[in-house]
Structure formats: structure tokens, C-alpha cells
Amino acid sequence: MKAKNKVGIYGYGAYIPRYIIENSSIAQVWGKLSTPIKSKTFPSYDEDSLTIAYEACRIAIESSGAPKDRVGAIYVGSESKPYAVKPSGTVLIDALGLSRRTLSADFEFACKAGTEAIQAISGLVSSGMIDFGIAVGTDTSQGRPGDELEYTAAAGGAAVIISRASEGVLAEIEASTSYVSDTPDFWRRSGEKYPRHLYRFTGEPAYFHHITTSVKMFFEEYGFSPKDFTYAIFHQPNSKFPQRVARMLGFTIDQIKPGLLSPIIGNTYSGATLVGLAATLDVAKPGDRILLASFGSGAGSDTFSFLVTDLIEERRAKPPLRAFLERVVTKDYSTYVRYRGKLML
């Protein structure tokens, strides 16, 4: 897909909570011998996907100087919304001081809800219906105690402000491709606290099939190849998958290195690829081209190409994601259980 009128990223911001838990602490409780990552973030007792979205949006707005009164939509992608019915954007608009003359909705597509929001905002901006829009990917994802997901389900998020390229963007969105199929790898029914997954669907039929198909379609349609990209970000549910899919598609580990955060922060679900994009934009130079391929269970994948412009130098996120990574403190399983509300009093 290509926007009729060119659009791009005007500003961005990312946030992760202060607290992490080592996978070894979880494994010790449940008697597991090997773990998928080193550590993961988890929210403090007073954080949720909305407060994480607030931080990411605030950083994006303040770092870029985006005009609050011209933001015409805020779409929040998440599978851990504080309210099942009441869009997070309603609180965000008043908390951020945005214009109330706006669109707002929660988006859900497992881990690709954030990139789905980018697609929708891009269309609204390109068509001229709105001037600026904010797409957010944020989660405080849930893993059933003892389940494989408990080792990786983490918290974090990022926001991108989309505008017409003519407004001056730090990265132009060159093109995108989306691919969706009915693949029951992971789901959470209404009213259920924790998601379920079908083990044999997780890898090949879900993650690898959808990302490789989406990226290959993108290459065929727009004539790109891996060597055209300085950096790439693939959805990162663990350490192995993004590295393996990168190799399958012909990318090198150096290309994905700046955006590969899952070994330390875990899988931030709707935030995962956008947090990776933010970390990559934190180090990108004008002229760099970035490929991003998200994955959402159920399942689908969005692939984008971003071309970084000269404005990156003045619009970089302040603070960068690195500043949040440097302040993390490690907590034990008992604190994690308390802060995640797993103790029923």
C-alpha cells in the first residue's frame, strides 16, 4: 500500500517500566531448566497500558513540537486495555491536553495492534481528513503463572505521530504491505484473564509464515531487497524468532541489532515492534532506510519501509529509550506477583 499523498513520522517516543524480573527467578519457582530470554519488564503497581501510552505520547509530542491542536486522531493498539469498554484515548486526550475535536479508538490485533493503528492513521492523514494523528502500541501483557508466556510477557510501549510529508517528517513512510489469515496460534476469550496458545501453531504456521509472506510480498511489490535497508525490526516475542526470521529473509544480525530489545525487556506485545523502531530511530542517520515487520497472533503481519530524513537530528526522542533501559532495577518473583495483581486478597 502506498499513501496517495506522502506521509511520515513527525515525532516518536517510547517508554518501558522501571522494573524487570530475570527469567531465572521465574524458572526457579516453576522448576524449568531453560528459559527463552534473560529478563523482562513488568509494570509497577500504579502502571497500566494507558499510563505507558501517556509517557510515550508525551515524549513524542514534546520532542517533536507537534501542534496539539492539530492532532485529529489517537488510536491505541493494545491487548491489555484498562477498560474493556472505554477507549484509552479518552483519558489520553485530556491528560495530554490534545484537542477534543478528534477521533479516538482502541485497536486490537494481538501484537500488531500498534502497526494496524499506523496504517489507519496514515490513511486519514494522506486523505486530508486530519492533519496529525497518533498511533500507539502499548501493553502490560499477561502470562498465566507457570505458562511459557510468563517468561516473556512484558510491559512497554511507543507512540508515533503521523503527518503529511509536506509538514516535515523525520522519516517518510515509503510503502507498506499487510497480510492476514485465520491461524489460531494464540487468543484470549472475552472475560478471560490470561491468553491461551496452541503450541504447534506458534512458530512456522504463525510467526514465520506471516512475517516472511508479508515481507516477500513487500519486496515483490516495491522492488526492495534486504541490502536496501540499513536497519530492520521484526516482531520480537523472544530472542530466537526475530534473529531466525531475519536470516531467513536475508538480513544480517547487525541490521536488527539496534531494535532487538526482547532479550532484556521481553515481549511488549503491541509495543514490541514500535519500541524496536524507537530504539532504531534513536541511532539512525539521515538517509537510512528501515524495514519494520510486525506480527499479531490470529494472525497477521504489517511490513513498512521508513526513509529517515535530515529532521531526525532535531526530533529524536528525549529521553531516548536507552535512558529508560539504564534505570531498570531487578525485582524478585514475589514483588512481580504483587505488582501484577496475581495475589488475591
Binding site: 503497581y45 500504579d46 502502571e47 497500566d48 499510563t51 501517556y54 509517557e55 484498562p82 483519558v91 491528560a95
Partner: peptide, 20 residues
């Protein structure tokens, strides 16, 4: 300043956010 949950009303589930 940042925005955080302050408290939740037990019966209604209404979440009160505020500056910390």
C-alpha cells in the same frame, strides 16, 4: 511529573488517574 493510577473504586471499577 508523570501520570499514574491513583486508586480504583472497588464496586464500580472506576480507575482514578493523576499526577505523581
Amino acid at each position: 511529573a508523570t501520570l499514574r493510577r491513583l486508586y480504583t473504586y472497588g464496586d464500580s471499577g472506576h480507575i482514578v488517574y493523576g499526577v505523581k
